[in-house]
Design a binder for these strands. Structure first.
Lengths: 190, 190
DNA sequence: ACCTGAACACCGTTCAAGT
DNA sequence: ACCTGAACACCGTTCAAGT
């Protein structure tokens, strides 16, 4: 099992500075933010960035773990509080809104639900999928969701809705309409 | 008005070679294909590529004008042959499938429906939007489409569905299910 | 009028040398 | 064990010189 050998003090310091700077850079310039620039702003050599985060994805993930875990926790929270159909609906809304509010998050969630993605499935994306699966199963048991979709489909469609909403930058209302349209489409056929 | 002053023979030759090579390169490497490589493969200097196509978008567009015009024509064809609801449904299906079959096309269509896009609205994207608007209007008159969506919304959502389908590379059946879900969501509320 | 290709700026990634 | 930063490869874009 993965030994969590503690990092050397300077390594730990660099790791944390990189994460902080990366979050700022992604927020400012999107997922394509210059890695070299991030290293410079964190006051470390570029090699150090690669040592800690071998790929851009790894850095994006590390920068957004907290937010993704929060989304997963939120699913269970809503599942416990609302009827299954409403819980899924509300969660999809928050998921889509959250996805486009945080720059860089959309590409991260997208790669988490990409079929045959080369990106290693990380713990937090697994949590997110698990939470989605529980909401989906409950909604289907309650007859509030089409039987021919799986959790992964719902997550991909949410990604699609987020993408469509991004195209409507000026129309702040679009996302609500697009999510409601997804919700309608997910209803079981009569 | 735009004078169509004929190009010099060598310019015309370069223009056409660039287009041909670009279409191949985009098909092979996607929208991010190296421009320098395209110029080299076409046997021209990189400056020549920029002279004819100042931006990557311009080149993408020129390479795919025919396909986009065909999609627009197809909309009118279906509109004349089928009941309004079915025509829209069938067209959306063909649009989504076509979008993901041709590499590079998705980003092009996406930028065509992006709000406040800096990309000049080209003639062919205007045609596409016009064709979509006619299908949408007819479907709404027939009561087969929600009244609170416009043509631009439908095109954005189709882009979203194409994006979601792309995430399901392995599952060739996903696109059908996702398009049908969009169709369901677009139905008027009872 | 159009083309060429060197020159510039920028970015990701690796790795030898250093502590 | 970890860090540094020079070195390399690659790409987009511009522009002086050439035809």
């Amino acid at each position: 099992m993965t030994q969590v050998r503690p990092m050397r003090a300077d390594a730990r310091r660099n790791y944390e500075r990189l994460l902080k700077v990366a979050a700022e850079a992604f927020a400012e310039h999107g997922e394509g933010a210059s890695l070299d620039d991030i290293a410079k702003r964190a006051g470390v050599g570029s090699g150090t960035l690669y040592r800690h985060f071998p790929t851009r994805q790894a850095l994006l993930e590390a920068a957004y773990v907290d937010r993704i875990e929060a989304l997963a926790a939120r699913a269970d929270e809503l599942g416990a509080r609302l009827p299954p159909g409403e819980a899924l609906q509300e969660w999809l809304d928050e998921l889509c809104v959250g996805t486009i509010q945080v720059r860089g998050m959309k590409s991260l969630l997208g790669s988490a639900v990409t079929d045959g993605s080369a990106v290693a499935v990380t713990a937090c994306s697994t949590h997110l999928k698990g939470a989605a699966a529980r909401l989906v199963a409950a909604a289907q048991r309650a007859g509030a969701l089409r039987a021919d979709v799986e959790a992964i489909d719902v997550l991909r469609l949410a990604h699609g809705v987020a993408t469509a909403s991004e195209l409507a930058k000026g129309d702040g209302d679009a996302i609500r309409r697009y999510v409601s349209l997804l919700t309608e489409g997910l209803r079981p056929r009569r």
